[in-house]
C-alpha cells in the first residue's frame, strides 16, 4: 500500500501533462517497481506503453531504435548485430532474460544510471536521442542528455521517443562489463569502444566508461590521443595512463574507487584491442 496511482494516458500530450517531480514514467517497470520503495514522494506512475513505439528500423543511412524496444529485441536484432555489435553485447549482459524481456532501452537511458549497460554502447555509435516535452520534440546527441545520476536534460518533464545512429561501414565496436558475478550483476565498471577507421588509421575514437562517475563518460583525452593515429602506433600503456588519469571514481557498496580506477583503465585498453582486432 504505497498508494500509487497508475495512469495510462492515451496520447503523448496527455502523458506530458501528467509529468512532474512526483510522477514516474513506467514502461517495462524493472527499475520503477524497485525505485518507488525509496521515493515516498512519488504518487503516480504514467504508463507509456501504448503511446510510445517499439521496434528497430533501418533507413538508408541510419538505424532507429524506438523507446519501448526491449533489451531482448536489441540483442536479437540482426540490424544491431551488423551496425552496433557493442550494443548487442551490452544488452545481452544486462541482468538476465526476464529483465531483458521487460526492460526497455528508452527506460534504461531515461533512468540515467551511471551503471546502465546500454548507455556506453549507444554512445560509441554517436547515438542521437529524440525526446518530447512541453516545448515539443527535440533531438540531441545522447552524450549531452545526461546531467547527473538519475538526471537528464528532460528534468522529469519529457519522454524519450527514439534513438538514431548513422550506419558506418568503417565503425568497429566492442563492449566489456565487469560485475561481481557472471549474471544478474550491476556493473562495477563497463566500457564501450567505437573506432571509425580508415584502413588501420583511427579517424575517430569513442572511449566510454560507465560506473566511474556520476554519468557515463567519454574519456576525451584518450579519444584525442587515438585521433588520426595508426593502431600499430598506439602506445597501449600511454593510452592506459590517459584513461587512468582522466577518471576519479568513488567507493560504493559494490566496489572501491581504487579498484574501479585501475580496472576501468585495464578494460578500456582490452576493449580497445578487442574493438580493433575482433570488433565489427
Amino acid at each position: 500500500m504505497v498508494g500509487l496511482s497508475i495512469v495510462k494516458p492515451t496520447c503523448l500530450e496527455e502523458a506530458l501533462a501528467l509529468l512532474n517531480d512526483d510522477t514516474f514514467v513506467i514502461a517495462g517497470g524493472t527499475d520503477v517497481a524497485i525505485q518507488v520503495h525509496t521515493k515516498p514522494n512519488v504518487t503516480k506512475l504514467v504508463d507509456v506503453n501504448g503511446i510510445l513505439k517499439k521496434g528497430i528500423e533501418e533507413t538508408k543511412d541510419s538505424v532507429i531504435i524506438y523507446a519501448l524496444t526491449t533489451h531482448t529485441d536489441v540483442m536479437e536484432s540482426p540490424i544491431i548485430a551488423k551496425w552496433a555489435p557493442a550494443l548487442k553485447q551490452a544488452c545481452s549482459q544486462v541482468a538476465a532474460t526476464q529483465i531483458r524481456n521487460m526492460g526497455t532501452i528508452g527506460g534504461n537511458v531515461s533512468n540515467a544510471s551511471p551503471a546502465g549497460d546500454s548507455i556506453p554502447a549507444l554512445l560509441v555509435v554517436d547515438t542521437k536521442v529524440t525526446y518530447v516535452d512541453a516545448q515539443g520534440e527535440k533531438t540531441i546527441a545522447l552524450k549531452d542528455f545526461f546531467t547527473g545520476p538519475g538526471k537528464t536534460v528532460m528534468n522529469k518533464r519529457g519522454l524519450v521517443t527514439k534513438f538514431e545512429f548513422a550506419k558506418a561501414d568503417n565503425l568497429k565496436t566492442a563492449f566489456t562489463k565487469v560485475g561481481k558475478r557472471n549474471a544478474m550483476a550491476i556493473s562495477v565498471v563497463n566500457c564501450a569502444v567505437g573506432l571509425y577507421l580508415d584502413g588501420d588509421k583511427i579517424e575517430k575514437a569513442n572511449i566510454v566508461l560507465g560506473s566511474i562517475a556520476p554519468t557515463t563518460l567519454h574519456i576525451k583525452k584518450a579519444e584525442e590521443y587515438l585521433f588520426g593515429r595508426k593502431f600499430a602506433e598506439v602506445d597501449l600503456n600511454a593510452f592506459w595512463s590517459l584513461v587512468f588519469n582522466s577518471i576519479n571514481p568513488i567507493d560504493d557498496i559494490r566496489s572501491t574507487a581504487a579498484y574501479r580506477k585501475q580496472v576501468a583503465a585495464n578494460v578500456a585498453r582490452s576493449t580497445l584491442i578487442t574493438a580493433y582486432e575482433g570488433g565489427k
Partner: peptide, 30 residues
Amino acid sequence: AEQIMAELNKKAAEGDPAKAKETVEVREPA
C-alpha cells in the same frame, strides 16, 4: 576481486618496478 587486484599490484611493484606505475593503492571494500 578487489583483494586479488591489490595483491597482484603488490607483486607487480615488488617484481617489476616498471610495472609499478600501473599500481595503485587499493583499500578494503567500503
